[in-house]
């Protein structure tokens, strides 16, 4: 092992733990190390303390679902599944807990979140591990003294001096390239905005229809439900194309993927359970036993899936409104993102 490999790093406040992606920032002897992991791979980026021009924290909503929040969600789901056995009295408590958990998460994501960017003369990079304002301040308290020790403190009238300079990489004017067949870039943007709004609308419509299907399951309601689901999938594809063309808000694409995942799970899981139940029932009948237990399990599982579907669509709808109503963040990293 070489000397450079034995560099000791101290973990800095803030850690992003996602299902697939993770991120953390570490302090080395003369640099900060940004580690971004993709389950089986880690990518590193180093920022020498002497090169850091500024660190900026901008308040912004961050709807990140961490593995910790997923764990809490799974615990709640277990509690919900168990509440059926405990009796109907427990159900309101379980739903109140769910509402409180979602409200806390939404509050943290909307009001206590931020985007943290680090600027050098040639780069502007986001630190994904720092997405809560409190953590960002803690991070700054740890890092500031090290950077000042490496560079020296700002002295004299730095405000006047800094006014003439641009922090971050030099400004590059982006060349607007309208999509083929679309003359006006503004028109294309409006179209993607309209698509997003319709998509968010279908989230609520889907939730309402799923609720109707649960309470008044008629053929007409089910057919409308299938039609809305088909529209929802079509809109998702259209929005993914808009994302590919670079005309979609950052959060919207995550919402589209999440809704497609939920739709896929709620569509295929009942079918899988039905197949499993049918096989189980057949084997029970062959063995000469009554096949009652599997149907009870199937009914309970269907109810859980239906409730999850309704809850998820309402949540996606609320998040969609939040994304649509929030002002567009102009800074997306890379060149041309100077802060002063």
């Amino acid at each position: 092992m070489t000397a450079s490999e034995r560099v000791r790093y101290q973990r800095l406040p803030g850690r992003r733990r996602g299902v697939i992606r993770g991120s953390s920032v570490w302090l080395g002897p003369d640099h900060l190390l940004l580690v971004q992991s993709w389950r089986f791979r880690e990518e590193y980026k180093r920022f020498h303390l002497g090169d850091i021009q500024a660190i900026a924290i901008a308040s912004a909503p961050r709807f990140h679902i961490s593995t910790r929040s997923l764990g809490i969600g799974v615990l709640w789901l277990i509690g919900y599944a168990a509440s059926g056995r405990l009796g109907s009295l427990q159900e309101p408590i379980v739903w109140t807990v769910a509402a409180a958990l979602v409200a806390t998460w939404a509050y943290l994501c909307a009001s206590c979140s931020c985007v943290c960017r680090i600027y050098t003369a040639v780069s502007c990079d986001e630190l994904p591990s720092i997405y809560r304002t409190r953590t960002a301040r803690k991070f700054m308290r740890r890092v500031e003294s090290h950077i000042v020790a490496a560079q020296g403190a700002l002295e004299g009238d730095w405000v006047e001096a800094i006014d003439d300079k641009t922090i971050g990489p030099p400004e590059v004017t982006p060349v607007e390239q309208p999509a083929p067949g679309v003359r006006d870039a503004g028109m294309a943007k409006r179209r993607s905005g309209r698509l997003s709004a319709i998509f968010v609308g279908t989230m609520f419509l889907d939730a309402a229809l799923s609720y109707l299907e649960k309470t008044h399951a008629t053929t007409a309601v089910m057919r409308i439900g299938y039609a809305v689901m088909a529209i929802e999938v079509g809109l998702s594809v259209a929005l993914l194309i808009e994302h590919y063309r670079g005309r979609l808000r950052a959060g919207m694409v995550k919402l589209v993927i999440a809704s497609l995942l939920v739709t896929g799970i709620t569509w295929y899981t009942p079918q899988l359970i039905a197949s499993f139940s049918a096989i189980q029932a057949a084997s029970e009948v062959r063995a000469g036993r009554p096949a009652g237990n599997t149907s009870v399990f199937r009914t309970r599982a269907d109810a859980v899936i239906a409730d999850t579907d309704i809850g998820a669509h309402v949540l996606w709808g609320v998040m969609g409104i939040a994304i649509l109503t929030r002002r567009q963040m102009p800074l997306q990293g890379g060149a041309g993102t100077g802060i002063v």
């Binding site: 002497g50 924290i57 308040s59 600027y119 403190a153 922090i167």
Partner: peptide, 9 residues
């Protein structure tokens, strides 16, 4: 925004 400018700027 909160920003911490440093001497390197």
């Amino acid at each position: 925004n909160e920003a911490w400018p440093f001497r390197a700027a």
